[in-house]
Simulated assay, not measured.
Amino acid sequence: MFGRDIGIDLGTANVLVHIKGQGIVLDEPAVVAIDNNTKQVLAVGEEAFQMVGRTPGNIVAIRPMKDGVIADFDHTEAMLSHFLKKVNAKSMLSKPRILICCPTNITSVEQKAIIEAAEKSGGKNVFIEEEPKVAAIGAGMDIFQPSGNMVIDIGGGTTDIAVLSMGSIVTATSIKTAGDQFDIDILNYIKKEYKLLVGVRTAETVKTEVATVAPNGKEQEPKDLDIRGRDMVSGLPRTITITSVEIYDALMESVNHIVQAAKNVLERTPPELSADIIDRGVFLTGGGALLTGIDELLAEELKVPVLVAEDPMHCVANGTGIMLDNLDKMSNKKVKI
């Protein structure tokens, strides 16, 4: 078997692998569990994620990616190798060509680190593309026409906002306020208001089940959820009930950062392209697009239609799949080390 073409969405929260002709074959948390004493990797992905907050002292579950870039090179490489092995990406005779995504404003050093990690984990030729561009393609936008398209990709570590035309990014920004920050906001709110310590996984459940940032979020029928944690005063387990109205207040500051960043991108957009965006609307992709009401809030603030892409979590991975078909044309865009 000759080398395959593989697309990787190397996210802060999740890693998705798309194999040409097969679609998305892997979607697992970007977590590695290591034994602190021996420095051995014990588990990767879903198995390691189950250990988060539940391990004895000598075992730590870490995220080797931070804010869309590599924070721990060796463990990123170990994680990628594990995932590529799991999907049988490497054959005996040849190595796969890999297309990997990165945030828009990372440095060339950070880009090289991503390429090097992909090469060391078994890639032959490694191509790198900017995330919002790939997300736009995965969301079904035709970015190769001479007209303006805007995409807001809210991931785990970063939110990438870009206006695209003629297959390239016209204006873009990347901010470190995204899904992970929402979790931290919820944790801090519960800690401050209820003197209760909860884990990241509990915060994520609150975010997906009751959180809303819709403009009329406070007037809507509040949803509530029982959560458990450790009382900071007594040290004992305790259960509280949290409502969507409370979480609305906790998330507003971070959500406003995203709104402001989107406004800044629109302010720098040529007027002809702005007119196109009013017609076509803005597409929301990434896991953060699933936050209840974020599309309504952005539409109200930006004064343009805002649409959540059909499968926001998989837009980048699906986009790499479409771009793999054009890999040969991209050969000249390969970043050399």
Rank of each mutant, 00 (worst) to 15 (best):
R97S: 11
K263E: 12
G179V: 05
T76Y: 00
G11D: 00
D27K: 12
I152E: 05
A261E: 06
T107Y: 06
G57C: 12
I106C: 07
I278M: 13
I98S: 00
D295L: 05
F73I: 04
N88M: 11
E253T: 12
I100F: 06
G68W: 01
I161C: 02
L26Q: 10
P103C: 06
V259D: 01
V15Q: 03
Y194G: 03
L187M: 15
C315F: 02
D35V: 05
L16W: 03
L42K: 06
S331C: 13
E193K: 14
K263C: 11
T171K: 15
S94Q: 13
V134R: 01
G148R: 03
G11H: 02
I24P: 00
L291Y: 01
A113I: 13
N105P: 05
L327M: 08
T269E: 04
L290A: 11
G155P: 02
N332V: 15
P96S: 07
A48G: 04
I190Y: 01
V308C: 09
E253A: 15
A250V: 09
E110A: 13
T173D: 14
I34D: 06
P146Y: 08
T285G: 10
E129W: 10
M65A: 07
M323G: 07
T212G: 05
I184M: 07
S168E: 15
N318H: 10
H18T: 09
P64I: 03
N216I: 13
K39Q: 14
P271C: 04
C101H: 05
T38A: 07
A317E: 00
M252W: 04
I247N: 06
G138M: 00
L84D: 02
V265L: 02
F127L: 08
D249T: 08
